[in-house]
């Protein structure tokens, strides 16, 4: 086998998001290394643990395929959680949740419109929003943590359907919906066009501006949903919730093979990225490795995946030594 055919066949394998190979390797490794890893309820645990970052990552993937990014998701998590816990007493649970979700979508809309109309890079727009929305959280909560007085709220976070935790189901259902959206609808396909060649998309009559706004609303929705599900797990919210979540989310999405430049990526890849992080955390925890090591391993894997991806996808012979 010559090196070039090796290259092409490697590239063909890469059609499966490569993170799934790492995920499988991790699962195999921990199956042997950690005693309780292979239990069914451990897997549902992993799903619950990863659902917060996982939900945000679903929205982030779409925004990143567009060639944008959203750094404000961590702050939106806190805002939505605070609103949906803090407003329960006045409004009741469902309306309060609706307010929480609405706040995330409204902020997503705002981010999207600013990115569209001003032409300022999404990185900068949402960096500003990250700082500002945290201010909104403190303004609303007056720096207080809120506790849910209605046990139904926290019960939801602990509940199961047919033995599967509800939060895990929520995550999986939304993953399936988003996968379908990205592979089968014109909105999803247009996302690749907008990220891959924005001018071409615009010339082809795709309403690029509204398209991007819709995706910012999506990521806002998912960040808010993640905040709310997180607060149901705790039965409470704190104003510092979600700090650094934007970075963990981007890590998961990039691990899943979505390119920062836009135009490529997939929900399945993101699912793989999210699960890999979850399995690593869980498995190392079961092996009684201190949580700190997970951070190191995650960082190393992120860089290693990037490194391997670059080596595989680049065409050695055509490349200049720059």
């Amino acid at each position: 086998m010559t090196s070039s055919t090796l290259h092409t066949s490697l590239r063909r394998v890469m059609i499966v998001p490569p993170i799934w190979l790492i995920l499988i390797a991790c699962v195999v490794f921990f199956s042997f290394a950690a005693d309780n890893f292979l239990a069914l309820n451990n897997f549902t645990n992993i799903l619950i643990q990863t659902s917060t970052i996982g939900l945000i990552a679903l929205g982030m993937t779409v925004v990143m395929i567009n060639g944008n990014i959203d750094l404000s998701v961590g702050a939106v998590v806190a805002l939505a959680a605070s609103l949906s816990v803090g407003m329960q007493d006045q409004l009741g649970i469902l309306p309060a949740v609706a307010v929480g979700l609405g706040s995330g979508m409204a902020l997503g809309f705002l981010n999207g419109v600013i990115v569209w109309k001003t032409g300022v890079d999404a990185f900068i727009v949402t960096l500003g929003a990250m700082i500002g929305v945290r201010g909104l959280v403190f303004l609303y909560t007056q720096e207080q943590s809120f506790f849910s007085m209605n046990f139904a709220y926290a019960d939801f976070g602990m509940s199961s359907m047919a033995g599967v935790p509800t939060l895990a189901i929520v995550f999986l259902v939304f993953t399936a919906i988003m996968h379908w959206l990205m592979t089968s609808t014109s909105h999803g396909r247009n996302a690749y066009a907008v990220g891959g060649n924005r001018e071409a998309a615009q010339n082809a009559g795709i309403r690029v501006g509204w398209h991007m706004v819709a995706n910012f609303v999506l990521v806002g929705f998912f960040a808010a949903l993640a905040g709310i599900t997180l607060s149901t797990q705790m039965g409470a919210s704190t104003p510092n919730l979600g700090i650094n979540y934007e970075l963990w989310t981007i890590t998961a999405v990039v691990l899943g093979g979505t390119k920062l430049a836009g135009g490529s990526g997939s929900i399945l890849g993101t699912l793989g990225g999210v699960l890999t992080i979850g399995v690593l955390r869980n498995g190392m925890n079961l092996m009684q490795v201190p949580a700190f090591y997970v951070l190191v391993v995650m960082g190393v894997i992120l860089i290693a995946v990037l490194f391997v991806d670059q080596r595989v996808s680049r065409r050695e012979a055509e490349e200049l030594k720059l």
């Binding site: 970075l247 981007i250 890590t251 990039v254 700190f292 090591y293 997970v294 951070l295 190191v296 391993v297 995650m298 960082g299 190393v300 894997i301 992120l302 860089i303 990037l306």
Partner: peptide, 11 residues
């Protein structure tokens, strides 16, 4: 890269 380093150094 620096995102990965952020995580690794924190660890």
């Amino acid at each position: 890269v620096t995102l990965g380093m952020l995580s690794a150094i924190q660890g």
